[in-house]
Amino acid sequence: MKTFLVSRTDAIGDLVLTLPLCGWLKQQFPGCRVVLLGRDYTRAVAAACPAIDAFLSDDELRKQSEAQQVATLRDLRADVCLHVFPSRRLAALAQRADIPLRIGTRSRWFHWLSCNRLVALSRRHSPLHEAQLNLLLLRPLGLSSVPTLPELVLLGGLVPTETLRAETAALLRREWPGQLNIILHPRSRGHGREWGLAHFGDLARALHARGHRVLVTGTQAEGDSLREWLTEHAAVLTDMTGRLDLPQFLAFIGAADGLVASGTGPLHLAAALGRHALGLFPPMRPIHPGRWAPLGPRAEFLVIDQPNCQECRTDAAACRCIKALEPALVLARVLAWQPLPPAYL
Protein backbone atom coordinates (compact mmCIF):
# COMPACT_ATOMS: atom_id res chain seq x y z
CA MET A 1 0.00 0.00 0.00
CA LYS A 2 1.69 3.19 -1.17
CA THR A 3 -0.98 5.83 -1.81
CA PHE A 4 -4.27 6.22 0.05
CA LEU A 5 -7.03 8.50 -1.24
CA VAL A 6 -9.26 9.58 1.68
CA SER A 7 -12.54 11.05 0.50
CA ARG A 8 -14.13 13.40 3.04
CA THR A 9 -16.15 16.14 1.33
CA ASP A 10 -18.35 17.45 4.13
CA ALA A 11 -17.91 19.89 7.03
CA ILE A 12 -14.70 21.02 8.74
CA GLY A 13 -15.48 19.35 12.06
CA ASP A 14 -16.11 16.02 10.33
CA LEU A 15 -12.81 16.37 8.49
CA VAL A 16 -10.89 17.12 11.70
CA LEU A 17 -12.21 13.89 13.20
CA THR A 18 -10.95 12.05 10.11
CA LEU A 19 -7.39 13.27 10.62
CA PRO A 20 -6.59 10.50 13.16
CA LEU A 21 -7.38 7.98 10.41
CA CYS A 22 -4.76 9.67 8.23
CA GLY A 23 -2.26 9.57 11.08
CA TRP A 24 -3.05 5.91 11.74
CA LEU A 25 -2.40 5.07 8.09
CA LYS A 26 0.97 6.79 8.33
CA GLN A 27 1.80 4.81 11.43
CA GLN A 28 0.67 1.43 10.11
CA PHE A 29 2.10 1.85 6.59
CA PRO A 30 5.42 3.70 7.00
CA GLY A 31 6.35 5.72 3.95
CA CYS A 32 2.84 5.73 2.51
CA ARG A 33 1.28 8.79 0.84
CA VAL A 34 -2.08 10.12 2.04
CA VAL A 35 -4.12 12.31 -0.32
CA LEU A 36 -7.24 14.01 1.00
CA LEU A 37 -10.15 14.56 -1.36
CA GLY A 38 -12.19 17.39 0.16
CA ARG A 39 -13.99 20.65 -0.44
CA ASP A 40 -12.04 23.82 -1.18
CA TYR A 41 -13.01 25.44 2.12
CA THR A 42 -11.22 22.65 4.02
CA ARG A 43 -7.93 22.99 2.12
CA ALA A 44 -6.25 24.97 4.91
CA VAL A 45 -7.09 22.25 7.44
CA ALA A 46 -5.49 19.60 5.24
CA ALA A 47 -2.41 21.79 4.79
CA ALA A 48 -2.09 22.11 8.58
CA CYS A 49 -2.16 18.35 9.15
CA PRO A 50 1.27 16.66 9.06
CA ALA A 51 -0.37 13.33 8.23
CA ILE A 52 -1.73 14.60 4.88
CA ASP A 53 0.68 14.74 1.96
CA ALA A 54 -1.54 16.27 -0.73
CA PHE A 55 -4.99 17.76 -1.22
CA LEU A 56 -7.38 17.25 -4.12
CA SER A 57 -10.24 19.75 -4.32
CA ASP A 58 -13.61 18.28 -5.23
CA ASP A 59 -14.73 21.79 -6.22
CA GLU A 60 -11.94 21.89 -8.81
CA LEU A 61 -12.70 18.33 -9.85
CA ARG A 62 -16.33 19.24 -10.58
CA LYS A 63 -15.22 21.88 -13.08
CA GLN A 64 -13.75 19.16 -15.29
CA SER A 65 -15.55 16.88 -17.70
CA GLU A 66 -16.32 13.41 -16.43
CA ALA A 67 -13.50 11.94 -18.50
CA GLN A 68 -11.07 14.52 -17.10
CA GLN A 69 -12.19 13.74 -13.56
CA VAL A 70 -11.49 10.06 -14.12
CA ALA A 71 -8.06 10.93 -15.58
CA THR A 72 -7.26 13.16 -12.58
CA LEU A 73 -8.05 10.36 -10.15
CA ARG A 74 -6.12 7.84 -12.23
CA ASP A 75 -3.07 10.13 -12.24
CA LEU A 76 -2.94 9.91 -8.46
CA ARG A 77 -1.98 6.24 -8.81
CA ALA A 78 -3.85 5.52 -5.60
CA ASP A 79 -3.78 1.97 -4.30
CA VAL A 80 -6.78 2.48 -2.01
CA CYS A 81 -9.77 4.82 -1.98
CA LEU A 82 -11.52 5.21 1.37
CA HIS A 83 -15.02 6.64 1.06
CA VAL A 84 -15.25 8.06 4.58
CA PHE A 85 -18.06 10.40 3.48
CA PRO A 86 -20.25 8.54 0.99
CA SER A 87 -20.71 10.14 -2.43
CA ARG A 88 -22.35 8.23 -5.27
CA ARG A 89 -20.54 10.38 -7.84
CA LEU A 90 -17.08 10.00 -6.33
CA ALA A 91 -17.56 6.28 -5.75
CA ALA A 92 -18.37 5.83 -9.45
CA LEU A 93 -15.39 7.96 -10.49
CA ALA A 94 -13.01 5.95 -8.32
CA GLN A 95 -14.29 2.78 -9.94
CA ARG A 96 -13.83 4.18 -13.44
CA ALA A 97 -10.32 5.34 -12.47
CA ASP A 98 -9.47 1.70 -11.72
CA ILE A 99 -8.30 2.35 -8.16
CA PRO A 100 -7.50 -1.22 -7.10
CA LEU A 101 -9.07 -1.21 -3.62
CA ARG A 102 -12.24 0.83 -3.09
CA ILE A 103 -13.71 0.70 0.41
CA GLY A 104 -17.18 1.90 1.41
CA THR A 105 -19.97 1.04 3.82
CA ARG A 106 -22.55 -1.66 3.16
CA SER A 107 -25.38 0.74 4.06
CA ARG A 108 -25.06 2.76 0.81
CA TRP A 109 -26.56 0.90 -2.13
CA PHE A 110 -24.27 2.58 -4.65
CA HIS A 111 -21.23 1.20 -2.83
CA TRP A 112 -22.42 -2.28 -3.78
CA LEU A 113 -22.01 -1.23 -7.42
CA SER A 114 -18.76 0.75 -7.19
CA CYS A 115 -16.73 -0.57 -4.23
CA ASN A 116 -14.98 -3.93 -4.08
CA ARG A 117 -14.68 -3.99 -0.27
CA LEU A 118 -17.72 -3.31 1.91
CA VAL A 119 -17.72 -2.67 5.66
CA ALA A 120 -20.72 -3.16 7.93
CA LEU A 121 -20.86 0.16 9.76
CA SER A 122 -23.79 1.73 11.61
CA ARG A 123 -22.80 5.14 12.94
CA ARG A 124 -26.08 6.25 14.43
CA HIS A 125 -26.38 3.59 17.13
CA SER A 126 -22.73 2.77 17.73
CA PRO A 127 -21.13 3.50 21.13
CA LEU A 128 -17.89 4.50 19.36
CA HIS A 129 -16.61 8.03 18.81
CA GLU A 130 -16.78 9.40 15.26
CA ALA A 131 -12.99 9.21 14.90
CA GLN A 132 -13.08 5.52 15.91
CA LEU A 133 -15.97 4.80 13.53
CA ASN A 134 -13.91 6.16 10.65
CA LEU A 135 -11.16 3.67 11.47
CA LEU A 136 -13.54 0.74 11.02
CA LEU A 137 -13.24 1.36 7.28
CA LEU A 138 -9.68 0.08 7.50
CA ARG A 139 -10.73 -3.49 8.31
CA PRO A 140 -10.24 -4.66 4.69
CA LEU A 141 -6.59 -3.56 5.07
CA GLY A 142 -6.13 -5.97 7.96
CA LEU A 143 -6.39 -3.23 10.59
CA SER A 144 -9.09 -4.63 12.84
CA SER A 145 -8.11 -3.06 16.17
CA VAL A 146 -9.56 0.32 17.11
CA PRO A 147 -7.21 2.69 18.95
CA THR A 148 -8.39 4.33 22.15
CA LEU A 149 -9.32 8.02 22.11
CA PRO A 150 -6.08 9.03 23.92
CA GLU A 151 -4.15 7.19 21.20
CA LEU A 152 -6.09 9.01 18.49
CA VAL A 153 -5.31 12.38 20.05
CA LEU A 154 -1.66 11.81 19.15
CA LEU A 155 -2.50 11.08 15.49
CA GLY A 156 -4.69 13.99 14.39
CA GLY A 157 -2.89 17.14 15.46
CA LEU A 158 -2.76 20.40 13.50
CA VAL A 159 -0.01 22.99 13.13
CA PRO A 160 -0.88 26.44 11.70
CA THR A 161 0.75 27.06 8.33
CA GLU A 162 0.71 30.85 8.64
CA THR A 163 1.99 33.25 11.25
CA LEU A 164 -0.71 35.44 12.69
CA ARG A 165 -0.74 38.92 11.18
CA ALA A 166 0.88 41.49 13.45
CA GLU A 167 -2.24 43.61 13.90
CA THR A 168 -4.23 40.54 14.95
CA ALA A 169 -1.48 39.21 17.22
CA ALA A 170 -1.45 42.58 18.99
CA LEU A 171 -5.03 41.93 20.11
CA LEU A 172 -3.79 38.90 22.09
CA ARG A 173 -0.92 40.60 23.90
CA ARG A 174 -1.26 39.81 27.61
CA GLU A 175 -1.68 42.76 29.97
CA TRP A 176 -0.80 40.62 33.00
CA PRO A 177 0.87 37.17 33.26
CA GLY A 178 -2.21 35.11 34.09
CA GLN A 179 -4.54 36.74 31.59
CA LEU A 180 -6.40 34.33 29.31
CA ASN A 181 -7.35 35.00 25.70
CA ILE A 182 -10.66 33.16 25.34
CA ILE A 183 -12.49 32.67 22.05
CA LEU A 184 -16.26 32.33 22.17
CA HIS A 185 -17.90 30.88 19.06
CA PRO A 186 -21.66 31.21 19.64
CA ARG A 187 -23.00 29.95 16.30
CA SER A 188 -22.81 26.44 14.85
CA ARG A 189 -24.26 26.76 11.32
CA GLY A 190 -26.64 23.96 12.20
CA HIS A 191 -23.84 21.54 13.09
CA GLY A 192 -24.49 21.59 16.84
CA ARG A 193 -27.06 22.60 19.41
CA GLU A 194 -26.41 26.22 20.41
CA TRP A 195 -25.93 27.25 24.01
CA GLY A 196 -27.70 30.59 23.52
CA LEU A 197 -26.59 34.22 23.35
CA ALA A 198 -27.84 35.00 26.85
CA HIS A 199 -25.48 32.39 28.31
CA PHE A 200 -22.56 33.49 26.14
CA GLY A 201 -23.20 37.07 27.24
CA ASP A 202 -23.13 36.10 30.91
CA LEU A 203 -19.88 34.18 30.35
CA ALA A 204 -18.26 37.08 28.49
CA ARG A 205 -19.12 39.55 31.25
CA ALA A 206 -17.86 37.21 33.97
CA LEU A 207 -14.55 36.60 32.19
CA HIS A 208 -14.05 40.31 31.50
CA ALA A 209 -14.78 41.15 35.14
CA ARG A 210 -11.91 38.85 36.13
CA GLY A 211 -9.46 40.56 33.78
CA HIS A 212 -9.52 38.04 30.93
CA ARG A 213 -9.87 38.91 27.25
CA VAL A 214 -12.91 37.65 25.31
CA LEU A 215 -12.90 37.39 21.52
CA VAL A 216 -15.93 36.34 19.48
CA THR A 217 -15.45 34.55 16.15
CA GLY A 218 -17.72 33.53 13.31
CA THR A 219 -18.30 34.06 9.62
CA GLN A 220 -19.43 37.41 8.25
CA ALA A 221 -22.98 36.06 8.01
CA GLU A 222 -22.84 34.86 11.59
CA GLY A 223 -21.49 38.24 12.66
CA ASP A 224 -24.41 39.96 10.93
CA SER A 225 -26.85 37.73 12.78
CA LEU A 226 -25.07 38.60 16.05
CA ARG A 227 -24.81 42.33 15.39
CA GLU A 228 -27.27 43.49 18.06
CA TRP A 229 -25.76 41.15 20.67
CA LEU A 230 -22.19 42.15 19.73
CA THR A 231 -23.08 45.83 20.07
CA GLU A 232 -24.71 45.24 23.43
CA HIS A 233 -21.56 43.50 24.73
CA ALA A 234 -18.95 45.63 22.95
CA ALA A 235 -17.45 46.78 26.26
CA VAL A 236 -16.54 43.24 27.33
CA LEU A 237 -15.50 41.52 24.10
CA THR A 238 -13.69 41.96 20.79
CA ASP A 239 -15.65 41.21 17.63
CA MET A 240 -13.57 39.08 15.24
CA THR A 241 -16.45 37.85 13.07
CA GLY A 242 -15.77 37.95 9.33
CA ARG A 243 -12.19 39.18 9.82
CA LEU A 244 -10.19 35.97 9.34
CA ASP A 245 -9.81 33.54 6.46
CA LEU A 246 -9.29 29.90 7.45
CA PRO A 247 -5.45 29.88 7.51
CA GLN A 248 -5.48 32.99 9.71
CA PHE A 249 -8.33 31.57 11.80
CA LEU A 250 -6.16 28.52 12.52
CA ALA A 251 -3.27 30.79 13.49
CA PHE A 252 -5.62 32.89 15.64
CA ILE A 253 -6.94 29.86 17.53
CA GLY A 254 -3.37 28.61 17.85
CA ALA A 255 -2.30 31.90 19.44
CA ALA A 256 -5.23 32.07 21.88
CA ASP A 257 -5.50 30.05 25.08
CA GLY A 258 -8.80 28.33 24.50
CA LEU A 259 -12.20 28.24 22.85
CA VAL A 260 -15.76 27.61 24.03
CA ALA A 261 -18.39 26.42 21.55
CA SER A 262 -21.00 23.79 20.86
CA GLY A 263 -20.10 20.73 18.79
CA THR A 264 -19.02 22.64 15.69
CA GLY A 265 -15.93 22.93 13.48
CA PRO A 266 -13.99 25.59 15.45
CA LEU A 267 -14.26 23.48 18.61
CA HIS A 268 -12.58 20.54 16.86
CA LEU A 269 -9.96 22.84 15.32
CA ALA A 270 -9.05 24.22 18.75
CA ALA A 271 -8.75 20.71 20.17
CA ALA A 272 -6.56 19.48 17.30
CA LEU A 273 -4.36 22.58 17.67
CA GLY A 274 -3.69 21.59 21.27
CA ARG A 275 -5.57 24.52 22.80
CA HIS A 276 -8.03 24.39 25.65
CA ALA A 277 -11.30 23.40 23.95
CA LEU A 278 -14.55 23.23 25.89
CA GLY A 279 -17.50 21.71 24.02
CA LEU A 280 -21.08 22.22 25.17
CA PHE A 281 -23.32 19.30 24.25
CA PRO A 282 -26.82 17.93 24.73
CA PRO A 283 -27.15 14.28 25.83
CA MET A 284 -29.23 13.34 22.78
CA ARG A 285 -28.00 10.65 20.42
CA PRO A 286 -26.44 10.85 17.88
CA ILE A 287 -25.16 14.39 18.62
CA HIS A 288 -24.00 13.62 22.17
CA PRO A 289 -20.32 13.93 23.24
CA GLY A 290 -19.85 10.17 23.19
CA ARG A 291 -19.94 10.51 19.41
CA TRP A 292 -18.67 14.06 18.81
CA ALA A 293 -16.50 15.12 21.76
CA PRO A 294 -13.44 17.16 20.71
CA LEU A 295 -10.15 15.25 20.58
CA GLY A 296 -7.06 16.99 21.87
CA PRO A 297 -4.61 17.04 24.79
CA ARG A 298 -6.61 19.85 26.43
CA ALA A 299 -10.09 19.07 25.10
CA GLU A 300 -13.08 18.63 27.38
CA PHE A 301 -16.86 18.87 27.29
CA LEU A 302 -19.90 19.56 29.44
CA VAL A 303 -23.25 17.79 29.16
CA ILE A 304 -26.15 17.55 31.59
CA ASP A 305 -26.60 14.25 33.38
CA GLN A 306 -29.77 12.79 31.96
CA PRO A 307 -30.34 9.80 29.66
CA ASN A 308 -31.59 11.65 26.57
CA CYS A 309 -33.31 14.87 25.61
CA GLN A 310 -36.09 13.42 23.50
CA GLU A 311 -38.32 16.45 24.10
CA CYS A 312 -35.82 18.65 22.26
CA ARG A 313 -35.83 16.65 19.02
CA THR A 314 -38.69 18.61 17.47
CA ASP A 315 -37.22 22.08 18.07
CA ALA A 316 -33.42 22.32 18.05
CA ALA A 317 -33.48 26.09 18.71
CA ALA A 318 -35.37 25.53 21.95
CA CYS A 319 -33.14 22.72 23.22
CA ARG A 320 -33.48 22.97 26.99
CA CYS A 321 -30.84 20.35 27.70
CA ILE A 322 -27.89 22.36 26.43
CA LYS A 323 -29.26 25.58 27.93
CA ALA A 324 -29.43 23.80 31.30
CA LEU A 325 -25.64 24.13 31.42
CA GLU A 326 -25.28 27.16 33.68
CA PRO A 327 -22.76 29.90 32.76
CA ALA A 328 -21.24 29.55 36.23
CA LEU A 329 -20.37 25.92 35.46
CA VAL A 330 -18.71 26.87 32.18
CA LEU A 331 -16.91 29.77 33.86
CA ALA A 332 -15.44 27.45 36.49
CA ARG A 333 -14.00 25.19 33.78
CA VAL A 334 -12.45 28.11 31.90
CA LEU A 335 -10.95 29.69 35.02
CA ALA A 336 -9.10 26.41 35.66
CA TRP A 337 -7.20 26.83 32.37
CA GLN A 338 -3.58 27.95 32.23
CA PRO A 339 -2.16 30.46 29.70
CA LEU A 340 -0.48 28.72 26.75
CA PRO A 341 2.31 29.70 24.34
CA PRO A 342 1.25 30.02 20.67
CA ALA A 343 0.85 26.67 18.90
CA TYR A 344 3.12 27.66 16.02
CA LEU A 345 6.20 28.30 18.17
Results as ranks from 00 to 15, higher is better:
T168N: 13
T168V: 11
A170W: 14
L171Q: 15
L171H: 05
L171V: 07
L172M: 08
L172R: 07
R173L: 09
R174W: 13
R174E: 13
G178F: 12
Q179A: 11
Q179T: 10
L180S: 03
N181F: 03
N181V: 04
N181S: 10
N181R: 05
I182F: 03
I182M: 04
L184E: 01
P186Q: 02
R187A: 09
S188V: 10
R189C: 09
R189S: 11
G190A: 13
H191F: 14
H191W: 15
G192T: 11
W195Y: 09
G196H: 04
A198L: 15
A198S: 09
G201D: 08
D202I: 07
L203Q: 01
A204S: 06
A204F: 01
R205E: 15
R205I: 08
R205F: 06
A206N: 03
H208Y: 05
H208T: 12
H208L: 06
A209R: 14
A209C: 15
A209M: 13
R210D: 07
R210F: 06
G211N: 13
R213P: 04
G218I: 01
A221C: 07
A221Q: 11
A221T: 12
E222D: 11
G223W: 02
D224P: 02
R227T: 05
R227N: 09
E228D: 12
E228H: 07
W229A: 01
W229H: 07
L230S: 01
E232L: 04
E232K: 04
E232F: 03
H233V: 03
A234S: 05
A234M: 07
A234Q: 03
A235M: 09
